[in-house]
Design a protein around this nucleic acid. Sequence first.
DNA 1: CATCTCAATGTAATCGTTTGCAACTGGTTT
DNA 2: AAACCAGTTGCAAACGATTACATTGAGATG
Lengths: 361, 361
Amino acid sequence: MPSIQDVAQLAQVSTATASRALSRPDMVAQTTRERVLKAARQLGYQPNVLARGLRQGETRTIGVIVTDILNPFHATLAKGIQDAADRHGYVAFLFNSDEDPAKERRALDTLRGHLPQGLILVPTSGAREHLKAMPDLPVVELDRVTGRPDATTVTTDNTGGGAAATRHLIELGHTRIGMIVGQQDISTATERHDAYRAALHAAGLTYDPALVLPGNHREDDGYRAAMHLLSLPADHRPTALFVGNNEMTVGAVLAARALSLRIPEDLSIVGFDDSRWAQTMTPPLTVVAQPAYDLGVQACELLLRRLSASGNRTPARVQLPTTLILRHSTAPPARPRSGASGPDPSAAHPPVTPSTGPPRA
Amino acid sequence: MPSIQDVAQLAQVSTATASRALSRPDMVAQTTRERVLKAARQLGYQPNVLARGLRQGETRTIGVIVTDILNPFHATLAKGIQDAADRHGYVAFLFNSDEDPAKERRALDTLRGHLPQGLILVPTSGAREHLKAMPDLPVVELDRVTGRPDATTVTTDNTGGGAAATRHLIELGHTRIGMIVGQQDISTATERHDAYRAALHAAGLTYDPALVLPGNHREDDGYRAAMHLLSLPADHRPTALFVGNNEMTVGAVLAARALSLRIPEDLSIVGFDDSRWAQTMTPPLTVVAQPAYDLGVQACELLLRRLSASGNRTPARVQLPTTLILRHSTAPPARPRSGASGPDPSAAHPPVTPSTGPPRA
DNA sequence: CATCTCAATGTAATCGTTTGCAACTGGTTT
DNA sequence: AAACCAGTTGCAAACGATTACATTGAGATG
C-alpha cells in the first residue's frame, strides 16, 4: 500500500501539502493540487484509515449490532443502515448478538476498540447494563428499547399494530383469540402484548392467560406454542392467533398445517412484520407490516445528525407507523360444529419439520 | 476511552511494561502483571485497534463482500464467515455490492483503507478487473469464481447439482424442460446451465435455446422469464422448469400461480438453493440444496489458514457437494390434454406431507 | 570480590496521518 | 525602503500502541 509519503515524493511536495491537497483542496495552489492528485491516482493511493482515525479521533465509523442477521427483518434494518451510512461517507460495522446478552457484550467490547463514533443497537435484555460501561458513546436504540431514561430510539408503533391486529380479529367475530408473544423483557413483545390485552378489554372480551404463550422469537418457539394452543379441547381452542413476530409466525403456520387445520377456515392467523414468505405462502398472510428498511435509514440518519450537531437538540425518539395488511389468513370463525374432530394431536407428530436455521451458538 | 498510558500510570509502570503485561504475559513478573491487569480491569481498558493496527501492520480484520445481504443464502454465508472469524479472534467487515460492479469497486476501496488482512468475496462480473488493483491482498472467492488463474476458491458443485436436477426431471418423463438461468458472466450460472445442457444431451434430448431464458438473479427476472416461457403455445410450453437460483425461483412460482398452473400437476419446478421459503411453500419445493453456512465457515477458515502459514501450501480450491432434495413440486408431466383449465389453485390445499430438510450441521 | 548472566523494566523510535506554527514568496501599502 | 499582507508550503509534534535496544539489579560463577 502506497502511503502519503510516496504520493508526496512523487509530486515533489511535503507530506503536509499532499495531505492538504487531498482533504483541504482550497488551501493549496491549483497547480500543486493537480500534481498531487495525479500522483495519488497514479499510485492508487488510499488513505490509511487507521492512521487518520488515530490522529483525528474521528473514524467515520459506526457500529451496528442486530440480534439475528438471518431474520429478514434484521437484514433489512442492516441494509437500510448501511445504505444511509454510505451516503454520508460513513462505514457501518455489523455485528450479531444472536439474542444472547453475552455475545452482545463481546460485540460491544470488540467494537469499542475500533472507536466507532456511534452505535445503532437492537438491544438484548442485557443491553441496559452493558451500555453503562460506555457512557459517552452516542447510541440509537433500534426497534426495541432498553428503557434507559434519555435514550435516543427509533421504533415502530407496536401498540397501534397490536391493537389493529387484535381488533381485526374481534371484528371478524372471534372471541377466543390466542397470542404467541415474545420474551417479556423485550419491549416490543410487551407492547404488543399489552395492546392485545387492551383491545380485548375494550371489546368487552376477557383476557384469558391460558391463551397467551411466550416464545423466544424463533420459529421453534412459535411451533411449540401453537401446537400447545391448538391442541386444547375444541371448546377452549382459540379460533384465531395473533403471533408476536415473523419467525414465530412461521412456526405457528407449520403447527396448524401439522394439525391439518385449514387457514383461515379453521384458524385465523395474523403475524407481526411482513415478509416475502408471508406474501407468498398459501394463503397469503394477514400481517402488521413494519417499515424495516426505513427504520434502518432513520436510525442511521438520526445518529449522524446527533454526531454532527452535538449541541443541537435533534429529536430523541422517532416512531414509525405500522400497517395492517389484510390478506387471506383471516376469516370469521367457523360455526361451532359438534366434536371438531381434529386429528389426535398427540399422535400428530409434525409431518413438516420446522426448518431450523443454521446452528445457533 | 482510557489509554494504555492511563493503565501504566495507575499500575505504576511504564507503558512498555503495561503493554507486555497484557499481550506477553510471560515477559513480566507475576506481581507487576497482576497489578497491570487489575488496573486495566479497573479502568475498563480496551486496546485501541487503530493504534495497534498501525504499529503492527496487523489488524486482525478481514473484509467480506457479498452481492445481496437480503438474500438468505448470502446472509447465511455472512453468518458462517463471521462466526468462524470470531472463533479465531478476527473481525469481519461486511459489505454489500448489490450485484453492481461499481458498488463493489467502492466497497473494495473503502475496505482497503481499513487494511484488512484478507478478503472473502462473492464476485460480481467486475471483480476480476478490480482485484488487479490490489495484488497482494489474500482473497478467497466464495460461491462464484472470477476465473483468475491461481485464485483460492470455495464453491459448490454446481455441475453436479445442475445435472441431478435435470436428470430428475428427465426421469420423471419430461421432455420439454425449460431453464431460467442467471447472468452468463457469473460462473455459477454458466456451470448450472452447462450441466443442464449436458444432461439433456446425455439423455438424447435436444437442447432448445428457446426454452432457456436469462435473468439477473432477482425475483422479478424469474417472474418475467417464467411468464414468457409458460405463455408459449401448449405444445411448446415446457412442462418442467429448472430455475438457476433461489430468488428467481420465487418469481417463477408466482408466475405459475398467476397463470393458474398447478404445481406439480401442470408444471414441475426444481429450484437451486434451499431456503425456508422453499420448504414451507405449497407444495414444498424440490431443490438442489447448498451448504451455505458451511461455505462461509470454510471460506473463512481457508483464508485464515492462508494468512498464518503463508509458505504452507494449503488447498487452493474447496468444493462442497450439493444435495437434490425431493419434495413435491415435481411429478411426471400431465398427459397432453387440451387447455390448461385447471381448478383455481388457490382453493387447492394439497395434503401436507413430510418434507424434511437436509441434516444441518 | 569482580564479573557474568539473565530476568525485569524503562527509553525511545516507529507506524501514516493531520495540523499548529513558522517560514518563505511576491506584491502592496505606508 | 520598511512594514505588512495573503497565499503557499514545510517542519515537526501529536494520536496510542508495540518493540528493538538499553539499563538495572540480583544472584551465580570464577
